[in-house]
Computed example of a mutant assay.
Amino acid sequence: MTAVRTSNTHAQAVDAAIELFSRQGYEQTTVEEIADAAQVSRATFFRRYRSKEDVVFADHELLLEEVVVMLAATRPDALDDGDLPERSWDPAVDPYLEVCRAARLVFDHHVGQRETSLARHHLLQIVPALRDRELVTTHRYERAFTKYLRDTLPADRSSTVQSIAFSAGVVAVHNAILRRWLRNPELDLVPDLEEAFAELRRGATADLVRRRELASGAASLATTTAGANGARVVVAYLEPGAEPEAVARAVRDALG
């Protein structure tokens, strides 16, 4: 019940602030007026939100916490009973997919709070301080995604730029499609969002597989040439210890 009340309180404060800013102007609206409209004291307002910029994005404070908890629940140490095995690529718990699910949660929040999202978007166009605050909020999501991937991907990948690149890509795609929706909220852009996320995952997963093969000494190169009677001959060069599936993949790639 406490979480529900806190959520409702934040939502009330966000709506009150946005309504006052839209009606009176950002600079002309005082903290006291926002606190009165949100039915909290001035002291409570500053304890919760610190500034006028913060209150406009107060709902995202709770949403970011939800995202972090959601991601943490799928980490290997959360899924294991304590005897943590070596981290491995588990298709049943795909870290890239989990990040996309978290970003989808953020998108659904915007769509579900349609009037608030549209009013906030309008304010961002005319108040530079709020645009700066939005960038801070966006960066916090990106950092949460990056930290999760670094903690969850196989150890040979956790120290590379892949976690940063994928997180930045997810946030960029999310924001681009969200802006399209804000310009035309009648559109259903969820299929576009999901397809874009799927494309990001395909690229990241393919890169992970290639790098793991290199790390295990299974790198290979195959070429085709013409044989007798027009037959195609595949010549494969493989590192010692290459697995059969690596050989088969090299041949398939050459024939393709």
Rank of each mutant, 00 (worst) to 15 (best):
M1W: 15
A3Y: 15
V4C: 09
V4H: 15
S7K: 08
N8T: 01
Q12F: 08
Q12S: 15
A13E: 00
V14G: 13
A17N: 03
E19Y: 07
E19A: 11
L20T: 01
R23L: 14
G25A: 08
Y26W: 07
Y26I: 02
Y26P: 00
T30E: 10
T30R: 15
V31Q: 12
A38T: 00
A38V: 00
V40Y: 03
S41R: 05
R42A: 04
F45M: 12
F46T: 02
R48S: 08
R48I: 02
R50V: 11
R50E: 10
S51Y: 01
S51K: 02
D54W: 03
D54C: 06
V56H: 06
F57Q: 04
A58W: 00
E61A: 06
L62H: 11
L64P: 05
E65V: 07
V67I: 12
V68E: 09
M70Q: 12
L71F: 09
A73F: 04
A73M: 04
T74S: 12
T74A: 14
D77M: 10
A78S: 04
L84I: 04
P85E: 04
P85M: 00
E86I: 06
R87C: 08
W89C: 06
D90C: 10
P91L: 08
V99Y: 15
A102P: 08
A102K: 06
A103K: 11
V106C: 09
F107P: 01
D108L: 07
H110I: 06
H110Y: 08
H110W: 08
L118D: 03
L118C: 06
A119N: 14
A119V: 08
L124S: 14
L124W: 07
Q125Y: 12
V127K: 09
P128C: 13
P128K: 13
P128Q: 14
L130M: 11
R131N: 11
R131I: 05
D132L: 09
R133E: 11
T138F: 15
R140W: 10
R143F: 13
R143G: 12
F145G: 05
T146R: 14
Y148A: 00
L149V: 03
L149D: 06
D151E: 04
L153K: 01
L153M: 07
A155C: 07
R157V: 01
S159G: 07
Q162W: 07
I164G: 11
I164Y: 14
I164D: 10
F166S: 10
S167A: 10
G169H: 00
G169Q: 02
A172N: 08
V173Y: 12
H174N: 04
N175V: 07
I177Y: 05
L178F: 14
L178V: 12
R179Q: 04
W181P: 01
W181N: 00
L182M: 06
N184D: 12
N184S: 13
P185F: 03
E186K: 09
L187K: 09
L187W: 00
D188I: 14
D192Y: 11
L193I: 01
L193K: 05
F197Q: 01
E199I: 00
L200S: 05
R201T: 02
T205W: 13
L208V: 02
V209F: 15
R211G: 03
E213F: 10
A218G: 15
S220F: 04
A226G: 07
G227R: 11
A231N: 10
A231M: 06
V233G: 04
A236W: 00
A236S: 14
L238P: 00
E239H: 10
A242L: 07
R252V: 04
R252M: 06
D253M: 13
A254M: 01
A254K: 04
L255D: 05
